[in-house]
Design a binder for these strands. Structure first.
Length: 100
RNA sequence: UGGGUCGGCUAGACGGUCGCGGUAGUUGUAAAACUAACGAGGAACGUCCGGGCUCCAAAGAGCGCAGUGGUGGGUAACACCCACUCGGUGUGAACCGCAAGAAAGUGCAACAGAGAGUAGACCGCCACGCAAGUGGUAAGGCUGAAACGGUGGUGUAAGAGACCACCAGCGUUCUAGGCAACUAGGGCGGCUAGGUAAACCUCACUGGGAGCAAGGUCGAACAGAAGGCGUUUUAGGGCUGCUCGCCCAAGUCUUCGGGUAGACCGCUUGACGGCAGUGGUAACACUGUCGCUAGAUAGAUGGCCGUCACCGAAAGGGACAGAACCCGGCGUAUCGGCCGACCCUCCAA
RNA sequence: GCCCUCGUAGCUCAGUGGAUAGAGCAGUGGUUUCCUAAACCAUGUGCGGAAGUUCGAUUCUUCUCGGGGGCA
């Protein structure tokens, strides 16, 4: 992800790299131990997967996305989580289309 | 009525929809698709003990080291569990206890105090002496966590287990009960033998080492260099603190550098769970019958909607916590809910 | 998953059954100086937590909390 762009939020850091490859979109989740216990980390990963699945149509071939979770994310509700995620994604997509 | 003790169970339920994991079946050359039933816990946690399993040739001996520590039983085993004994706490139901040995030996006890361990003599008491002091004594005072039996009497110059009575404690022995720990009672002895073993130690019993990243099969990739010790007179290794014994052995060890990090087996049917019966006070065991109940490999349980229960006046809320080879325990965390047995107290009879 | 280690002052470390736990640096106040630094004097701050053994625990034992490291 050295060539990607980054968007930071209060509880999220998102990296996006758009390449011209033909591979399907790839997603990675980084949940460190600082986020919480094993139960809380699992919850964050599952919610991230569910949220990305709902937004699959927003991505193109060749995209690579990494979501890094920060401490405090596990205490959010589902609605707060998706709101932060959408904000960050919109920022990334908007800046990407401008530069091209 | 109020308060409490112990034991057990549970950890929201049902449905719709979009998804995930392995398994079975069908289709398909294959990739994959479809269908079906399953899919985290009471602690999955901490990793504090004990085992199974695997490898170390087999798992040998002695010393050392470590662990356990009332008795009997349960168990594959245990530091766990059950029953009992002893000691302590509580009005009680009950609870707590690393609960062997201090006359085998060594050590330790600061400060205070006269004295802290084969006792001792500061004040005191008594005798002698004009006095200084000398001798006797340990009842009383003081210090301390702890001071060498207690009470009463006899006795004495004053006193003292010096002697006596009772009591407490010790050793030894006998009787009765109990598998035993131990309990009850009697005789004899000597008159007191202190504390600490989670200090060294002694006694009894137990323990070989490593761990599923164990271990095995297949496949992929790469590049060697320097040095040490050896090649039948035994280097090095298994082996871990030492010694012995045994085995492997022609290579092996150290440092630097380079490469790989994929697949499969191990892997889930087990000291397994439910029910019934029998034995046992119980822990538990045996017999019969029924059942199959996660198996991932960056790690599968989430999102949305509805109904009904719980808490709350409502808004709203719902604990602790996520399997990674598997079991048996222990310890710790936990919003709550339910059931049973028992104790104290209040009222009534 | 398994194994091994370490917690003492703000920091780096000593210590070890005995009263009031030390050393260096840092901090605060003062002396000196026209002012600052240096120097000198004074001073505050602690044994990760809870039980137990002991007359007495930082030390011994058990449980627990937190940190660090290793493995094919």
């Amino acid at each position: 992800m050295k060539h990607g762009r980054k968007a930071t939020n209060q509880h999220l850091v998102i990296y996006l790299n758009r390449a011209d490859n033909a591979h399907p979109p790839r997603f990675g989740f980084v949940v460190a131990k600082t986020v919480g216990s094993a139960v809380q980390r699992n919850l964050v990963k599952r919610r991230s997967r569910a949220a990305i699945r709902e937004r699959l149509s927003n991505f193109q071939l060749g995209d690579s996305l990494v979501i890094r979770a920060l401490p405090g994310l596990a205490d959010l509700s589902w609605n707060e989580f998706t709101q932060e995620l959408d904000e960050s994604l919109n920022k990334l997509v908007a800046s990407g289309s401008e530069s091209r």
